[in-house]
């Protein structure tokens, strides 16, 4: 009687064991792939003249910091530094620096206008809540230097009529993109004469 009871317990135990092996979730022990958090990187690049872009694209700040560091080193006498080399470096740097500052200023100008355009269109666009659909509609916009919208065209549909319509409605409500006024003509022509506008359902 006792034996059979123990036998029964044993068989329960063995079954439990087998079952546990099959069903227990080990995911907490095994490093999971989606534990790696991906952070979306925001970056800004845009078309510029080839000749305007310095061949050496170095971070000015870093470079001058490095130079400072080099000087410090020589003062401390830890390591002898070729002085000629240092002079050559800083001369070259100055040239780069001027070119780059100019470029940066222009870059920033364009960047600000883009941000302003985004802000305004965002404020006008009544985005439909199409839950969890990751779609986008792309338009080409043609502008006059006055900022007047000469034409716009849907070049790539999102596949959702409601979504395309909402973007169309937003564009229909704007006749001028005044944000481009005052921009140097060269940069207007290069960036805003004709540009693409992408409406996305998700900001990823």
């Amino acid at each position: 009687m006792t034996n059979s009871f123990i036998g029964l317990l044993n068989s329960i135990f063995v079954h439990m064991l087998l079952f546990a092996i099959l069903t227990v979730d080990f995911s907490i022990f095994v490093p999971q792939q989606d534990r790696i958090k991906t952070i979306p990187v925001e970056f800004v690049t845009f078309p510029m003249d080839v000749e305007n872009i310095p061949k050496k694209t170095k971070n000015i700040k870093n470079e001058s910091l490095k130079n400072n560091f080099k000087k410090k080193e020589s003062i401390e006498g830890l390591k002898a530094i070729d002085k000629k080399q240092l002079d050559f470096d800083s001369k070259k740097n100055l040239k780069d620096q001027i070119a780059e500052t100019k470029l940066l200023k222009q870059k920033r100008e364009v960047q600000i206008r883009i941000a302003l355009i985004q802000e305004r269109i965002n404020s006008i666009w009544k985005k439909p809540s199409l839950i969890n659909k990751n779609i986008q509609a792309e338009f080409v916009i043609n502008l006059a230097p006055s900022g007047e919208i000469l034409s716009f065209d849907l070049i790539s549909s999102s596949g959702e009529k409601v979504f395309d319509d909402s973007a169309l409605a937003a564009l229909s409500n704007i006749s001028f993109i005044t944000e481009v006024i005052g921009l140097e003509r060269k940069y207007f022509e290069r960036n805003f004469r004709s540009f693409n506008l992408v409406f996305k359902s998700k900001n990823q």
């Binding site: 317990l9 135990f13 439990m16 064991l17 546990a20 092996i21 227990v24 080990f26």
Partner: peptide, 13 residues
């Protein structure tokens, strides 16, 4: 893998 079910087995039992 081999210890965990054992622990569970015991506890359940």
């Amino acid at each position: 893998l081999s210890i965990f079910p054992l622990v569970i087995g015991c506890a359940t039992q």
